[in-house]
Nucleic acid binder design. Sequence first.
DNA 1: CTGTTGTTTCAGAAAATACTGAAACACGCT
DNA 2: AGCGTGTTTCAGTATTTTCTGAAACAACAG
Lengths: 200, 200
Amino acid sequence: MTELTQRFVLHFGEMGSRWGINRTVGQMYAYLVASPSPRCAEEIAAALQVSRSNVSMGLKELDSWQLLKRNHVPGDRREFFTAHGDAWDIFKRLAEQRLAREIAPTLSMLREALMEPAAEDDVYLRRRMRDMHDLIERLTGWFADVQRLERSTLDRLLTLGSGVVKLLEHTGRFSTTPTAKPRLEPALGGTQILERHDGH
Amino acid sequence: MTELTQRFVLHFGEMGSRWGINRTVGQMYAYLVASPSPRCAEEIAAALQVSRSNVSMGLKELDSWQLLKRNHVPGDRREFFTAHGDAWDIFKRLAEQRLAREIAPTLSMLREALMEPAAEDDVYLRRRMRDMHDLIERLTGWFADVQRLERSTLDRLLTLGSGVVKLLEHTGRFSTTPTAKPRLEPALGGTQILERHDGH
DNA sequence: CTGTTGTTTCAGAAAATACTGAAACACGCT
DNA sequence: AGCGTGTTTCAGTATTTTCTGAAACAACAG
């Protein structure tokens, strides 16, 4: 391992903890990303100085994130692994997985809860829940939509940034005058505090 | 706490673990979101059945995510807390914070490493690192840019989804013919495996 | 200054996660 | 079937994270 590889691997180890994955798994992935050619489990274990079984677990985890490509050499029974795709590809996969793991369950929960008949006391909470639900639905829809675009198109949109609005105004089909009000008014704090009398 | 609040709180507790925050902090935030009026630390501790000091820690954490609003009632020395903003606002704050915590450090690391003179052996890794660096820089730039848009404009863009491209084609200033190739070719797997002679 | 009420810090206990070595498993070869 | 090579599972251990109660701290009233 070169000095640079070492640094790269260690950094992603540390970052791993801030993401949902653990240090070793982060290191493993970084190591694969840094490797020009596929690596087998044994090599990874040796390079990172962790047990063989830990690598096995880690590979399973990375696989569940769809970040691995498995390679086979004819005449060799071992499996070789690569981090597939370029940075964009990786980013898309990560975003997709995180959406599925971190957002989707909440969406279902909200949907289910909102289906049920409303209790008197829950008006406020239900309003917030509906708000949340709508936002999440729109965000995930947007993402699914955008994800299907060509890489080059996406590239250009990204570069455009908020400049996209300027261009859109030219089409005339995109008015920028505010229309609908946000569903949930600020409504919190301020005067409302004075309503409290229960100050325990 | 109503039945619904209970469910809401417990759900965000569970999800908390999938996000970087812990269960209790997740619950605390959900509880505040669900509350129409501000709550003091004592109330939170009672509602969630955790220690007072745990709440103090949790509030500190939430505060560092800029998710809290502190309220004061005249003549009462206690502090009251609210989850401020609507779903959009919360989403933006979260995205911003996660960017700062999960992405920014990597960006610096990459930038620093790439500044240094390149070693022979590191050509491949440096290519990947530059690729990554450029992508991250563009993504964060895009986000910062878009974040500044009006809520209603953002709303409309979101609804438009990938339809934005269709509209843009009308302006003639947005060509969809591919131009630049991705910087990093796939280049992995396949034939390359045969180059290995060091068999483990 | 002293007492009261509310908040924060912190060291250690409790709980959750990650890691290991050993054993079980899988697959091909003879 | 029996053997060789590689992978996975799993129970126990080690490490990390979270949570608590007690003590320190802060702000104010009398």
